[in-house]
Computed example of a mutant assay.
Amino acid sequence: MAYTFEILETEKIELVIPLVYKLNNGKIDKAVLMERFSDMITYNNYECAVIYDGSKLIGVTGLWFCTRHYSGKSVEPDHVFIDENYRGKGLGKQFFEWIYNYVKDKGCEAVELNTYVSNAASHKFYFNEDFKILGFHFLKKLKK
């Protein structure tokens, strides 16, 4: 099968909401996700990469670009998700190869990411992609 990898136009950002909703197991309301994505697309350092099977959107990741003192210009794939029916077929590897080439062309020297502790399948994938564990990601929710 031929899949299409591309950067999603910002005016189509609502298309990724169902996939990101699944990624979070429905724990974040779709309206909240839409509000957050509407904000995210306004930043100059965010792009949304997607996978299409024909006209069907089957995969997504955000790409956050920055420069870090320890790694130089880098990109952080965020909210990586591929539809369950397309997993285990090498599509993730193809998607990341496309991402590596895309971000190298933009001058990136490194790729770094976070993944949920409970997502063991993603850990295996990233180890196979030669990612190394550099540290821990901490989160503190601020009270309103």
Rank of each mutant, 00 (worst) to 15 (best):
Y70S: 14
F96V: 00
Y86E: 01
I51A: 02
T67G: 03
V50D: 07
S74R: 15
Y70Q: 10
G54V: 12
K93F: 07
D78K: 03
I58M: 11
S55H: 10
K73N: 10
G72E: 14
E97H: 09
P77T: 11
D78I: 11
F65E: 05
V80W: 00
F65M: 12
D53N: 11
W64V: 15
T61Q: 11
G72N: 07
Y52H: 06
L63C: 13
F96K: 04
K73C: 09
F81H: 03
G88S: 15
T61R: 02
G88F: 06
F95T: 03
P77F: 03
K89H: 08
N85F: 02
K56A: 07
H69N: 15
V60W: 01
W64S: 12
G92Q: 03
E76M: 14
Y86N: 06
V75S: 07
S71I: 12
W64A: 14
H69I: 12
K56M: 10
K89D: 08
L91T: 09
V75L: 10
L57C: 09
C66S: 13
V80G: 00
L91G: 05
V50K: 06
S55A: 11
W64P: 01
V50Q: 10
L91C: 12
G62K: 03
K56T: 09
L63P: 02
S71C: 15
L57P: 03
K89R: 11
D83F: 02
S71R: 12
G54Y: 12
S71Y: 13
E84Y: 06
G92E: 06
K89M: 14
K93D: 10
K73I: 07
L63F: 09
D83W: 01
L91S: 13
F65S: 04
T61A: 10
K93W: 03
V50E: 08
Y52L: 03
C66N: 14
S55W: 01
K93Q: 14
I82D: 02
G92I: 05
G54I: 04
K73H: 07
Q94L: 12
N85P: 02
I51G: 04
E97T: 11
T67R: 08
Y86A: 06
Y70A: 15
Y86P: 08
D83N: 14
S55E: 12
V60L: 10
E97R: 15
F96I: 00
Y86K: 12
C66T: 13
Q94K: 14
F96E: 00
G59W: 01
V50F: 11
Y86G: 08
N85V: 08
D83C: 02
T61K: 04
I58D: 03
D78H: 06
G62R: 00
G90N: 11
H79K: 13
S71Q: 09
E76P: 02
R87P: 01
F81D: 00
D78Q: 13
C66K: 07
H69D: 14
K93M: 09
F95Q: 01
G62I: 00
V60T: 13
